[in-house]
Amino acid sequence: MNLQLKVWRQQNANTKGNFTDYTLNEISPDMSFLEMLDVLNEQLLGCGQDPVAFDHDCREGICGSCSMMINGKPHGPENMTTTCQLHMRKFNDGDNIVIEPWRASAFPVIKDLAVNRSAFDRIIQAGGFISVNTGNAQDGNTLPIPKPDADAAMDAAACIGCGACVAACKNASAMLFTAAKIAHLGYLPQGQPERHKRVLRMVHQMDSEGFGNCTNTLDCEAACPKGISADNIAKLNQDYLKAKLRGISA
């Protein structure tokens, strides 16, 4: 396959970036999208040029690193797929492909396509955990959990923190991420003691990071590579309101 790439190049967070055009020839349709970028970087290094920086780690769809906007869609054209699991056979010979980093003030560009997603870590640090004393884990069967709750918690826990929800949202809102992290603990008994404080603290942190707000357009759930439902956002809203009505302070 021969491809025309239009890639965002930016030295660092403080410089202005711009698009650069590249031509790639003889790309195998069996390559993953990241392997295609590897070929591009080999080519650039061969010419003594700076390779395109992009994040990647597991290359098996679970680490959430390989974040990039491909032709206007987070992680590219295939639904519920991360960039590393996207294959070049999804494209046609001669295609133009536009590759951009996530664009959000809360995700500053580190270099080229790599953005700093530490804002997500700080949201987790604000309350996305349970406080338990260490020691042996008790027998799982002593904590009865209704099957629908266990399923809902597991679905929400599938979030890999890739940031596609923020990237797809017209407001660059992190509500789907925050809601998923709140829901996967909120459905389980272990998450109950800190449930109210958790939602207040995490929402406060989310707002402080400068993300936009949710206008319920649902583009986030369509972009999510793990298919996490935006209904979790409504659950976050309910938890938030309940915590406030009970007079709980963060």
Partner: peptide, 17 residues
């Protein structure tokens, strides 16, 4: 919301909205 995305995408598809 405007402040949350100071630089617009060159290409952005609407998915489900």
């Amino acid at each position: 919301n405007r402040a949350a995305r100071p630089i617009a995408y060159q290409e952005k598809k609407s998915l489900k909205s």
